[in-house]
Amino acid sequence: MMSLSKEQQNIRVTEIALLGAFALFLSTIEMVIPRPLPYMRIGLANLSVMLGLAMLSTREYFLLVLLKILGQGIIHGTLFSYVFLFSLGGSSVSALGMLLLYRCLGRQLSFIGISVSGAFLSNLMQITLARLILFGRSAWLIAPPFLAVGLVTSVILGLFAQQFSIRSRWLAAKTGGAG
């Protein structure tokens, strides 16, 4: 697990900006990929958030998450619509969950487990919001396929993040080298 030295307590703008831009880039790429059903997303941008777990302090991490949420709202054009609530709710809960898991179970859990848990939390939150705001009880009908697709895509995303974290010298340098 990473620890910040005292001199580094200030927010590292460059790293956050880079990861934030990465998240927005991936969100844009994801829009190009056709979706089988309207609300099913791959969540590519969470790759950047997971790298943020390894690289950033808690404060910086939440700043990154906020950047991702706002940026996605702008890119998707949903910033001032109710869809943004879903994004906000899902992203915050999953970001919080992933951070807790990473900090508490980081030694046992790789990015695969973190990705799977994060996606599940995000989707569960979004369905709960859909049930409360939009569709009523019938929102649960879409839940099983929605969550199942989320499980599959999050495993793939986690595998990728894990491979990346093993091989990337850039990430190793940013997180303080060998481990």
Partner: peptide, 19 residues
């Protein structure tokens, strides 16, 4: 930074719990 290849037991646990 942890350098571990492949899926850990805890990962499997997470996947199984979610499934």
């Amino acid at each position: 930074m942890r350098k571990r290849k492949g899926i850990t037991a805890a990962d499997w646990a997470a996947i199984v719990i979610v499934a």
